[in-house]
Every structure is written in structure tokens, then in C-alpha cells.
């Protein structure tokens, strides 16, 4: 009769290891790229001065963009960017920056709605820049084609985002508001190229916005979406979760090597 001392202890240990492995994997996957979107600390408190955007501008923006918005060595002129750009940068939390060297990243907005509206109105009044785009209902099917041609190379066809040359991110698009998507297309913030009306007319912009919007709504019929990141994450799940689970299974099903005896070698040839 084969002795299997401590077999039930080993089995219990293995089952615990399997459970820990699974739990760790699930936790890791749900935050698989959590470090990708860094949140920005907001300098100015949400305490607003809703009546006059100019006061907030002078307090938080003028030190880089100039008291009259004509720019300094720290930041570009805002005289012709218009309400469109201001709305985009403020609502996506890209502005204001704590310092001129800080990376421009999306995050929670630094101000409340009313303050932003006031600021946007003020910046718009500085020159003749474009106003906030008006949106209409778009056709997601037409937008899909345009999105794949113009946007997927940087933002990924699933909208999960990736990196561009130099390491800056092209962010994921699932949490961006419809209007901000349209504004970004026109403004071309940071490394993103701009797309003006002659390249993408307002109907095409509406179509792309409709498509991006439905990307954001849950459309993972296959189960956990794994951030729709693609084969890198899927392969990691296969090699670090699926395969180890089956190794645990055969470890439980099979036996361990027999105890070694001191004179064990190839006798009996």
C-alpha cells in the first residue's frame, strides 16, 4: 500500500494557493492599467467665483497665459483658441496645471460647472476663436468607418488608448463626454492632430461622436472585457491564470515522486 504522508495537508495547501492565485489575478486584471490615467491634483479649490470668469482667470491662468491671454514663455496665447478649446481643456481636467512643466493629462475637472462656464465665456471673449461645437444625433455605423480610418491608430479601435511616439498617452475614450470628443477633434490637443471642418464636416463629427459614445457603454457580451486591450492582456490571463489553474488540477490529481533511497540509480541493466 502506498503511503502518502501529509497528503491531505498538501492538498489543502494547494487549494489555498489556487484560490489566492485566482483572487490575485482577478484583482490585478480589474486594475490592469490603473496607473495609465493619472489624476491631476487640482490647485485652485472648487470654491468658485461664478459671476466673473475673469477673476478666476487672473488668479489661476494668467501666470502662464498672460493677464490678457496673449501668452508668456510659460504658456501659449489664448486669444484665438476660442470657447471650444477652453471648454475642452477645463472639462477634461487638463487645465489648470500646477506648474508649467507638469504633463498635460486628463483627470477630474478642477472647477465646478458654473465656474467652468464662466471661464469658458471669458476665454471665448478674448478673441475670435471657435465657439463650442453644436452636436446633433449621429450615425454610429458611419462613424465607425471614420473612426477606424482617423482615430484607431492612436486611440485603438476599441477606444482603449495606447501610446504615441515619445511615450505620451493617447487616452482611452470611454469616459470622455460627447462634446469633449468633438472639441478634441477640432482642437487637436497636445500630440493629437487637429481635424477642421474641411476635413471632417459637422455631420461626420457627429457620426464619430455617436460611435465613440457607444464604445463607452458596456458592450462586452463575452464576459469581463479585460479593458479591450488585446492580446497582451489576454495572453497574460492565459499564461498566468488559465494554465496555472490546470497545473494545480494535475498536481491534485497526480502523485508526487516516490521518496528517494540512497542507492537509487540504474541497477539491473
Amino acid at each position: 500500500m502506498t503511503e502518502r504522508p501529509g497528503h491531505s495537508r498538501t492538498r489543502a495547501r494547494l487549494l489555498c494557493a489556487a484560490a489566492v492565485l485566482l483572487a490575485a489575478a482577478v484583482l490585478a486584471l480589474t486594475g490592469v492599467r490603473s496607473t495609465a490615467t493619472t489624476t491631476q491634483a487640482s490647485s485652485g479649490a472648487a470654491a468658485a467665483d461664478p459671476g466673473d470668469g475673469r477673476e478666476v482667470f487672473l488668479r489661476d491662468c494668467a501666470w502662464c497665459h498672460g493677464t490678457d491671454g496673449s501668452g508668456t514663455h510659460n504658456g501659449p496665447a489664448l486669444t484665438d483658441v476660442g470657447a471650444e478649446a477652453a471648454d475642452f481643456y477645463l472639462r477634461t481636467g487638463r487645465m489648470p496645471l500646477d506648474s508649467p512643466d507638469q504633463d498635460v493629462r486628463s483627470g477630474p475637472p478642477a472647477y465646478d460647472d458654473a465656474t467652468i462656464s464662466a471661464l469658458v465665456a471669458y476665454v471665448g471673449s478674448l478673441g475670435n476663436g471657435p465657439g463650442i461645437p453644436a452636436l446633433a444625433a449621429g450615425d454610429a455605423a458611419a462613424g465607425r468607418k471614420l473612426f477606424l480610418e482617423n482615430c484607431a491608430a492612436c486611440h485603438s479601435s476599441s477606444g482603449t488608448g495606447t501610446i504615441v511616439s515619445g511615450g505620451q498617452p493617447a487616452p482611452e475614450l470611454w469616459h470622455t463626454g460627447k462634446r469633449q470628443v468633438a472639441e478634441a477633434m477640432r482642437v487637436g490637443p497636445g500630440p493629437m492632430p487637429p481635424f477642421d471642418e474641411k476635413q471632417l464636416d459637422p455631420q461626420q463629427v457627429d457620426d464619430i461622436v455617436a460611435y465613440v459614445h457607444q464604445l463607452g457603454s458596456p458592450q462586452d457580451p463575452g464576459g469581463a472585457g479585460l479593458d479591450q486591450y488585446g492580446p497582451i492582456v489576454e495572453g497574460a490571463v492565459a499564461l498566468l491564470v488559465l494554465l496555472p489553474c490546470l497545473v494545480v488540477v494535475i498536481r491534485l490529481l497526480g502523485r508526487r515522486a516516490p521518496e528517494r533511497s540512497s542507492s537509487e540509480s540504474e541497477e539491473d541493466r
Binding site: V164, S165, G166, M192
Partner: peptide, 11 residues
Amino acid sequence: GLYTDTSRQLM
């Protein structure tokens, strides 16, 4: 497909 207009590079 990736164009970065700040550095004028295609990646």
C-alpha cells in the same frame, strides 16, 4: 498610422 503633431513624427 500614428501622427504626433507636436514632434512632427509618424510612428
